[in-house]
Design a protein around this nucleic acid. Structure first.
Lengths: 158, 158
DNA sequence: GTCGGCCTACTCGGATAGTACGTGTCCGAGTGAAACGGG
DNA sequence: CCCGTTTCACTCGGACACGTACTATCCGAGTAGGCCGAC
């Protein structure tokens, strides 16, 4: 159960876009160069973010990507779901109703194991949904005050 | 980020073994037949459980698998970790230190994104570690009182 | 009848192919800025 | 000098190969029960 590598990239890129503020479209290639990532593959992840409505893309010569909403309204859950998909990690295939032991017609309402796993997964999703990009920005600014300036100046120097 | 199907199988099998109680070794083939699972592949998952010390295997003619400890001391986290592995789902590859923006020599202590993701994953792991096989047994007995008897009688009728 | 040895069937254990998804890549459609020419 | 047109470089968007990990499987090592024969 390994999370896609694109999740990490997408989070970093979203955070960078958040620091740059609205109104500035950053090309995918430049976004990739910032962390020396494969440009085209990062592009793919960006498309997923666009489809999810997290970032907006503007085509054309001075086009690029930028956050579609306020960082305070973008949760980590949004980003993870956009890249990884909406389906839960644990999927119950109802094997308990298979085989000679199966309850056959009288299907039991709830699979206890599924309920337990879902409970844990909900805790994970809630922890992700509680953290927004704005929270991460605040943490970075508190821990490394120089970082936001460095990011914006590097992208501005493009 | 889909969890391996073997996790579901392993959980169901562990719960069945828990209902059967200690002292009775169940062959892997019979354990698979209970839910009509591929016997050899389930066997593979069982080996992972043995390596993790969750179930003990006895070879030989009347051999089989049985729980290695009391169900109250086996958490869902143990089973999931045994099948899926110990590594966290989100792995930080430290891309922030790559590229022209990289802090270079002065590596920043903590990756904020990694910390946020790890926080969520810890919530997930904690929720799994809080639930034991004994808890699941109690839930099943309360919801479906007939199930434990059906399980033990089916396996006894082998 | 009892004991010892042997055999056989059954068990787990690790090493081996097939397949789906994540990884990496490519080229085409669309846009807007800049260059160019005419008035 | 100003305006309209054209060109073109640059952007995103979806369709196309490759590699790794999950899925599925096989056969070998080991054990213990059962059987057979001798005593």
């Amino acid at each position: 159960m390994m999370m896609s590598e694109g999740v990490e990239w997408a989070l970093h890129c979203c955070l960078n876009l958040a620091f740059l503020g609205p109104g500035t479209a950053v090309p995918g290639a430049r976004l990739a160069a910032f962390h020396e990532l494969p440009p085209v593959y990062l592009h793919k992840q960006m498309q997923a973010l666009v489809r999810a409505g997290i970032v907006s893309s503007t085509p054309g010569r001075r086009g690029g990507f930028q956050l579609a909403r306020d960082p305070a309204h973008i949760t980590l859950m949004d980003v993870v779901a956009a890249v990884e998909g909406q389906e839960p990690a644990f999927r119950c295939t109802e094997i308990r109703s298979q085989g000679p032991s199966g309850s056959g017609g009288t299907t039991q309402a709830i699979c206890t194991i599924e309920a337990a796993m879902r409970k844990a997964e909900m805790a994970w999703r809630r922890a992700l949904a509680e953290q927004t990009l704005a929270d991460l920005m605040a943490t970075v600014e508190r821990r490394y005050p120089a970082t936001p300036r460095r990011i914006s100046s590097w992208f501005a120097a493009g």
